[in-house]
Design a protein around this nucleic acid. Structure first.
Lengths: 249, 249
DNA sequence: ACCTGAACACCGTTCAAGT
DNA sequence: ACCTGAACACCGTTCAAGT
């Protein structure tokens, strides 16, 4: 029943089959694989994950493509490692969340995640492509789940809240930075496009042209986030009314 | 200021530069480009957009790769056409929305969109990668905006509601069907993985392992959608309280 | 006028030969 | 034991030669 094939890079099985700590072989410095990932991320930020070439990466490292294969088994593995590397950049100040409500803390966490994605726009498709289960992905998931649980969410609702928030942030970022809209000034282009449409055929779109495009994306992100949190607030109230039990104090 | 380069396939400029009607040249039947897209979609459903090869497509059409270039300028253009083709599959029964509330109608629309994405799981990255401004994308946007406007939403709120819903559906689908989780049985794998984690290091994730993975994804989709609609309902109430004016009847 | 075989530059990947 | 030049199969794309 269980397949004997190599696990898909980025999948749970793949991460589980990796050496637990960053592959310290013998007494050599651990610079190797980290430096490759760091350089790959820098190149991806410049040209995009699609356009990144192993030859390009090898050149930047003053090496050859064959050498890269001593540290990972192909480009897919490299991209999975880079994706988790980016997740490791998300910084949520833990001291802040102490005195704050779950809602404030969730807002800070979602915006920290979104901010990190904004710093690596060309890498967003990497993050959106799969459920992040690398070490840094696990850490982020754990932190967010703990946040909800510690504020009285049931396990069930906490799990759903995490998934909904994660989907929203990555979904938003990929539409914001997808390959179809690489330039920031595309909003203006898009507005002109909506305006130029036949008002008879597209009355609503033409009327909403400005509102569809003029809103700063940061503000738009906040708006959708507030919608989700409003909904979560109601779900939590419903839950505590029906069951009357908080999971923990 | 304006660049003289070829517009990016899938961008507004690119769509605008295309022949408005499906390129009827002379009196030849319009089967050509449509048949290519149809065949490409079938192949993408089987092997994924990444693995689709122009040679593979040409073979399936009993032709050569060079012939394909007579109908579009490269693979990116083909993929943009396929993406809009998929959007054209979304069917929202218009008669249904007549007697329904905006909330019911929005639910039907979101689930129709989600259902279409579920029928083409391997093509989802195509849809998530950019703002859809092809003819079918425009049609869907127009329909949804009209829905909100006709139920008293302000233009501003309607635009944001559309964006939030669209982000949610595509964001959800890409996480559901991304290349990292191609198989349906991966949920079970993922649960085993969460359970196998060190409970000391990941107490919340281990505790929520079942809730993170056992929920049917269809139900999970509904849950997040309800959250969004709850939030929209509140935003609409706030809006009508403050302004006191409905846009139209 | 339209189609296409054959080539081109380049990709990810492999391996035998180096040190 | 570790590295890597050089090759391999194959990709998207082009163009001169066919009909």
């Amino acid at each position: 029943m269980a397949s004997a094939t190599t696990p898909v890079p980025g999948s749970p099985d793949w991460w589980a089959s990796r050496p637990p700590a960053p592959t310290y072989r013998r007494g050599r410095p651990p610079m190797d694989v980290d430096r490759i990932i760091e350089t790959a991320l820098k190149l991806i930020d410049e040209v995009g994950a699609q356009a990144l070439t192993l030859r390009m990466l090898a050149d930047a490292l003053d090496s050859g493509t064959a050498t890269l294969y001593r540290h990972f088994n192909g480009k897919d593995e490299l991209l999975a490692l880079v994706a988790d590397r980016i997740l490791g950049e998300v910084r949520v100040p833990p001291e802040e969340s102490a005195g704050k409500s779950w809602r404030e803390a969730a807002t800070v966490a979602a915006e920290a995640f979104h901010g990190t994605l904004c710093r690596h726009p060309r890498a967003v498709p990497l993050l959106a492509a799969q459920v992040p289960v690398g070490p840094n992905g696990l850490r982020a998931r754990e932190r967010l789940l703990t946040l909800f649980l510690s504020h009285g969410f049931s396990v069930r609702l906490a799990a759903r809240a995490y998934t909904a928030l994660g989907h929203y942030v990555t979904g938003f970022a990929i539409q914001q930075y997808g390959p179809g809209s690489p330039r920031p000034e595309d909003q203006v282009h898009l507005r002109g496009y909506y305006r130029s449409l036949d008002p008879a055929a597209y009355p609503a779109t033409a009327a909403a042209a400005d509102d569809l495009t003029s809103v700063p994306l940061q503000e738009e992100f906040r708006f959708g986030l507030e919608l989700l949190l409003d909904g979560l607030e109601q779900a939590r109230l419903r839950e505590s009314q029906v069951c009357g039990d908080a999971v923990e104090r």
